[in-house]
Design a binder for these strands. Structure first.
Lengths: 169, 169
DNA sequence: ACCTGAACACCGTTCAAGT
DNA sequence: ACCTGAACACCGTTCAAGT
């Protein structure tokens, strides 16, 4: 998964076996193309998270399933979260793409907040939201740092440190 | 501070009031230019961290000074750590630039490990290194997420959550 | 409705040519 | 030693032209 800058009409056209001007017929601007990609990426993430809710027995399993998705990206050709990449490109992003990046963050924090709420029914919603945001940010950061080292073990090491502090509990 | 992709020979030349081919005289390739920038960026960070060691009275002040640098980037036109951006661009980075990104990470974790060692003289070096890496990753992630929201308050909120868990202690 | 070719202003890069 | 102009193959984008 590449970011906004690495995305190319001509490369994409070549892969599909068509001219770049044809791609512009379906996605007039790069903003259209990139936000469509980011939107689909978020939809897939939401589907995955909903699946976890259905199949996981307890909180620990949910967290394990959630973090596994980020780990998988690294293990699979040292990739990282599309919206993490795009967040780093924020200054170069058209408004429509920025909105999609924020939708991904919102979907993730909403899900985390929900599973935290199930575990801590008495804790205030504000506090759970702050914790959800902290979990998301910490995992994105771990992925970012692990990726630049090209080493999944770094990701595991950082997440172990988070877990030991009780970030996920 | 922009990343590798946003860096342009022609833009830089225009700022200096010279032709882009003149910039190539000093920095033959974009890899040369970007790694020189990243190298200077790391040197400034190291100087800043050394300054903190000299001026800060205790561990909390050191952490406060360290996190303040990341916060300042956000407050100043929603910027973020150059090497954080470049880590997200890792796939597109020439080897020389990748090496500079890793040098930045190494300088930061070494510094964090050192101040943690001063505070916890009996704890094993491995454990301190893991903690240093976790702190660095968590802060980079907080900056990434806060930036996409264009809101420094998000950074503060996330760092408060980290502090409450004892990440920095 | 969908695709193409050609053009435009951008980009990094090279290089012969200027001082 | 340093700068320039012109060229190359790239890029997103537009648009008249094809089917």
């Amino acid at each position: 998964m590449h970011g906004y800058n690495a995305l190319s009409f001509r490369d994409l056209a070549k892969e599909v076996g068509v001219k770049s001007s044809s791609v512009h017929y379906h996605f007039p601007t790069k903003a259209d193309l990139a936000s469509a990609l980011a939107s689909r990426y978020t939809a897939e993430a939401v589907a995955y998270m909903d699946d976890l809710i259905r199949t996981c027995q307890d909180h620990d399993a949910l967290i394990a399933g959630y973090t596994a998705a980020f780990r998988r990206a690294l293990a699979d050709q040292n990739r990282m979260c599309l919206c993490g990449i795009m967040a780093a490109e924020f200054h170069e992003l058209p408004e429509a793409v920025r909105a999609e990046v924020n939708r991904f963050t919102a979907a993730n924090t909403r899900w985390l907040e929900q599973i935290l709420a199930n575990r801590h029914p008495t804790v205030a919603r504000d506090a759970l939201h702050a914790r959800a945001l902290a979990i998301f940010a910490a995992i994105e950061g771990a992925q970012l740092v692990a990726r630049s080292r090209g080493d999944v073990a770094t990701f595991d090491q950082i997440l172990s440190a988070y877990a030991a502090l009780g970030l996920f509990s």
